[in-house]
Write a protein that binds this DNA or RNA. Structure first.
Lengths: 201, 201
DNA sequence: ACCTGAACACCGTTCAAGT
DNA sequence: ACCTGAACACCGTTCAAGT
């Protein structure tokens, strides 16, 4: 039976979910698909391209466009949907972070574009809207990568109770940070805050 | 001549600067120090511990405390000092990100604590100040990692002029994002903005 | 106490040769 | 067109044995 790009990505996603990113190797993937390692290189140029495809597969649910809402609700909606998508796979945040940094995730580019639109509507000028959007993405990726690595320590049994504040209520904590960013964007159009801002210009 | 922890970290830092994080391997480091790979494991438990030590060495200049300033100036000062420290080494942001995520960088914990203090002074309550501080760190790490990977594409000759907005004025772009976060923190004490915020609660 | 030598169990990638 | 087999050039980590 012929090997197709789709099957490879599907098995890679399963490997990721079951064993984590460290065990998602080209050789192990090939073994699991009952092909030789070289076979994968007929379908993908290199490992990075394969990981990008896995990242985009994980991000499918996050691409559910949040239309017909205020810019701030769209930012919150996109950020929340992105986190949910990342959490649905083991090490999802780490994988997508790497693929995004390498410029290998098309869907992250899409999400970035939607966030940029929202930021523009929020009153950020065109030259800075992209950066505001990226700031949101850095936050979501950083927060979720952190969250997932803590989940793994906890699963390994290393529950330090001094850090319980960091593991409790992750949803509320995530929402708070997102709100901080939305407030920051909103501040750029809020006249009342502009006076306060002049200390930082 | 005996091998000391300090020499290993120094050579590792040099290797990082000269060839990047991909070439910072235990075997290569041992070869460069004229010892066998196993020798390194007498001084460090594993590679992660070694990388943490390198991260902390890179972060020394960022620990220059910014005392006697308003909370907002301290956030901007710490963020800027952190970025400068990361930029001084090839792949510095990637290395420190990994070490921070793994909980292996003491200095990042210190910087986090200073940012948390600043956020508290900025009016964020104790339960959320840590998160606000982390949000700043996620931003600085994300922005700088992005910046450094672009520097490498450019050095490799792949100059896409459509992305010139992203590579030009990185200092100004960085400052803008930092200001966004400071504004977000400030919004929590600004009564005028609280009315605006109620949409997101 | 500190290090060597050698092994163990892996990697990503390439490429002639097969079908 | 699609894949195998085998090689190339590596990894991180462990550990008996040496000094």
């Amino acid at each position: 039976m012929q090997l197709h790009r789709h099957d490879v990505v599907a098995k890679a996603t399963q490997l990721l979910d079951d064993y984590g990113i460290a065990d998602l190797t080209m050789r192990r993937l090939a073994r699991e698909l009952n092909v030789s390692p070289g076979a994968l290189y007929w379908h993908f140029a290199d490992k990075q391209e394969l990981l990008g495809a896995v990242a985009d597969r994980i991000l499918v649910p996050a691409s559910a466009a949040v239309e017909d809402a205020s810019w701030s609700r769209r930012v919150v909606g996109l950020g929340t949907a992105l986190r949910d998508a990342l959490l649905s796979s083991t090490d999802g945040a780490e994988l997508v972070s790497a693929s995004f940094a390498a410029g290998k995730s098309e869907r992250m580019i899409e999400i970035l574009a939607e966030l940029t639109d929202a930021a523009t509507e929020g009153g950020i000028d065109a030259s800075h809207a992209d950066l505001a959007a990226r700031t949101v993405l850095y936050y979501v990726l950083g927060f979720t990568a952190d969250e997932q690595s803590r989940l793994q320590w906890d699963a390994a049994g290393a529950l330090v109770d001094g850090q319980s504040v960091l593991t409790a209520n992750p949803n509320a904590r995530f929402a708070f940070g997102l709100k901080l960013l939305v407030d920051g964007i909103a501040a750029h159009t809020s006249v009342e805050v502009n006076a306060l801002q002049e200390n930082f210009e």
